[in-house]
């Protein structure tokens, strides 16, 4: 390989490396965090279809303790509907189910 060819090849390799590095860098920047500022609006309309499949009603409601164990939190029964919290207390407090 003469020196001219060597220089040409070297330049080609350098250009390739730079392009590849540039592409890799842009790929790194193209991640989910890039879009974190996007917010969607939920327009509804809220009409539950074949969606509610079960009601779970523990006799003694449970919660996670610090150790990761599940412990009762209150003696009174509460109702849990799928995807929500107690509809009676929520409705009385006037909260939106989300």
């Amino acid at each position: 390989m003469d020196s001219q060819s060597f220089k040409k090849n070297l330049v080609g390799i350098l250009v390739f490396v730079l392009l590849a590095a540039s592409f890799a860098a842009s790929q790194d920047r193209f991640n989910e965090g890039l879009l974190k500022g996007f917010a969607f609006r939920n327009l509804g309309p809220f009409r539950a279809g074949s969606w509610v499949t079960s009601f779970a009603v523990p006799a003694a409601p449970l919660k996670e303790s610090g150790s990761g164990r599940v412990k009762p939190i209150a003696p009174e029964a509460r109702t849990r509907a799928t995807g929500s919290t107690d509809p009676r207390t929520r409705a009385k407090r006037g909260r939106t189910w989300a």
Binding site: N42, G44, P45, F46, R47, A48, G49, S50, W51, V52, A81, G83, S84, P87, R88, A91, T96, W97, A98
Partner: peptide, 22 residues
């Protein structure tokens, strides 16, 4: 959606505010 009755189903209340829709 979800309904609750306090009189054994004679009347009921519908929770229209659950954000669901298919």
């Amino acid at each position: 959606g979800v309904n609750i009755s306090y009189d054994r189903g004679r009347t009921c209340h519908h929770f229209y505010n659950i954000p669901l829709g298919e």
